[in-house]
Design a protein around this nucleic acid. Structure first.
Lengths: 215, 215
DNA sequence: GACCTCCTGGATAGATCAATCTAGTATTGT
DNA sequence: ACAATACTAGATTGATCTATCCAGGAGGTC
């Protein structure tokens, strides 16, 4: 068990990655098992061997996989001790570049499926929820460390999440990165304000309060 | 033609409304024509009589219909001359109530389908884009009237859009209205700041500039 | 009443769907 | 070497999908 997997990806991995990509791009219902088999150069036999729960199990695993990958991406921008305003700026800029480079196809690995299955498949809904919460947890942690009080850190994390997800939706739909750039500027400013960065002087009252809590 | 339609809805209308609801809840690919026929108490014959383009034409029409309905909803909150901060607050509060009342099923009438078809069906993508832009146009207009310069009004409109759409996504996924409330507070504050509302004194520089442009 | 257009009803076709099944080939442990 | 297990292969099944088709009802016009 747990074989070494040196050179090429295992069949299982290929299936999960192909699923994640197809689900993200065309949605859950819009992706056929046949397409997954073809795209992963595997077979029905292999797919149902590794995922006896069928398409839905594959959906859950793909959401977890995409969620995990994206969480690492968030962590790569919001590193420990990094300036959260700079990180926010970079994160949105990076997102805009990726979205544009993939022809407005790849944005959030979860959102498309999450909306589709939110009241259709409870296991998948939960997997999506856990993915989202794991991203929020990273942001909350960094924002707390940067001086926000925990409740405020949660709020700002949620605001940032909403901004980027809404921007992804609008960007993919109108085929322009403008929304990501606008949301990025707004979020960087909001994070700066919440963390007590100068910019606008009297905005600091709330942030100063926060910094007293976490010295 | 254009018959009076006094008491009960026309078959065509019933089909469009059933489609819009089913697409919004379960997505485009996740909704079968059979389900639309059943839910609208019509038949295949009627459906393909009114929509010879089949499911895709129905998708376009449903997006337009949902977009129009929601645009009117936005206009009902952001009435001419209304306080944009109050309107923003009410809008998010209303959204939270609706989302909760429908058991986290009904939020945005466009988003689910928009993400699904963004790089699958060009006619549907365009219909979704037009719906979104029509909402943004309403917000832009009101924000301009409230004293923001046009470019800034567009930005704030986009920020608000992203916030509510992201909040809808997160709310439906984690089954909580918390994100809508957080996003609402943040947006009301941002709108207030952009419009030059006091709250934080020195935030006004940019807004004052804007008010000089539109006296 | 005959005709015409608009709409309804639903059976049916043909494609595609998820999933199963059996037979087979590696790989592993002893 | 042998047996057991892990994985692959893909034809097949029955359900479900979108779309077509045509017979007929409803209502208006001459």
């Amino acid at each position: 068990m747990a074989q070494t997997e040196t050179k090429e990806q295992s069949t299982r991995t290929r299936i999960v990655e192909a699923s994640a990509e197809l689900f993200r791009r065309h949605g859950y219902a819009g992706t056929g098992v046949k397409a997954i088999v073809a795209s992963s150069t595997s077979t029905y036999g292999s797919l149902y061997h590794f995922f006896p729960g069928g398409k839905e199990e594959l959906g859950v695993v793909a959401l977890r996989s995409g969620g995990e990958t994206y969480r690492r991406l968030v962590e790569a921008f919001y590193t420990e001790g990094a300036d959260v305003v700079v990180a926010t700026n970079s994160f949105f800029e990076g997102a805009a570049i990726v979205v544009e480079m993939t022809g407005f196809a790849d944005a959030c690995p979860i959102a498309t499926v999450a909306l589709e299955v939110a009241d259709t498949s409870e296991p998948m809904r939960q997997a999506a929820a856990e993915a989202f919460e794991s991203w929020l947890a990273v942001l909350e942690k960094r924002f707390s460390e940067a001086g926000m009080d925990p409740a405020r850190a949660r709020e700002v994390a949620v605001e940032l999440f909403c901004a980027i997800e809404g921007a992804f939706l609008l960007s993919r739909t109108i085929r322009s990165t403008e929304p990501i750039k606008i949301a990025g500027r707004a979020c960087s400013a909001a994070v700066g304000a919440a963390v007590g960065r100068t910019q606008v002087a009297s905005r600091n009252r709330r942030a100063k309060r926060a910094r007293n809590v976490i010295p």
